[in-house]
């Protein structure tokens, strides 16, 4: 099985499409697809100090902070027009956008370097040390 990613946005003029806003919510949401983030979430995001944010999701208080990727890395968002039926079939994805930073949110707990998503970035350096040239 192979996975192919097509980037039709390579020559796009619209730089913002790769600088979208992203939120990492401390909750398993059983839904896929578009969400009204602009209307239901963003209006309530408040900066309480230089790097601390507060927000609310489904009535739960959230504490957040921005996370940037290590040098040379960025996030892309891909979609798949049709998922093949077979488990081992080849899959094709299209690039639809991306982001350079995101907000890591915790439920009623200040964010820290011990949050799993922040720690996950460690792997990039370690992987480089193990597998790099």
């Amino acid at each position: 099985m192979s996975i192919q990613v097509e980037n039709n946005l390579k020559d796009t003029e619209d730089k913002q499409i790769f600088e979208q806003k992203a939120h990492y919510i401390p909750c398993k949401i059983e839904a896929d697809g578009a969400a009204n983030v602009d209307k239901y979430f963003e209006p309530y995001v408040t900066e309480t100090s230089e790097s601390e944010l507060t927000g609310t999701f489904r009535g739960h208080p959230l504490d957040g902070s921005k996370v940037t990727f290590p040098e040379g890395y960025r996030a892309i968002v891909v979609t798949e027009a049709k998922r093949p039926l077979g488990e081992d079939a080849d899959r094709r994805f299209q690039v639809v956008g991306g982001f350079k930073e995101f907000v890591n949110w915790n439920w009623d707990k200040k964010t820290s370097k011990n949050d799993s998503i922040v720690k996950a970035m460690d792997w990039i350096d370690i992987a480089d040390a193990i597998h790099g040239d």
């Binding site: 949401i29 059983e30 839904a31 239901y40 979430f41 999701f57 009535g59």
Partner: peptide, 26 residues
């Protein structure tokens, strides 16, 4: 995804029951 606008008190059982039935599970 978001359930209700913030006019609603999410912690009321009326809201909890309704969201369980009609919105994505969270």
């Amino acid at each position: 995804v978001f359930g209700y606008p913030l006019l609603v008190r999410f912690s009321w059982s009326t809201a909890e029951v309704m969201l369980k039935e009609k919105a994505a599970a969270c």
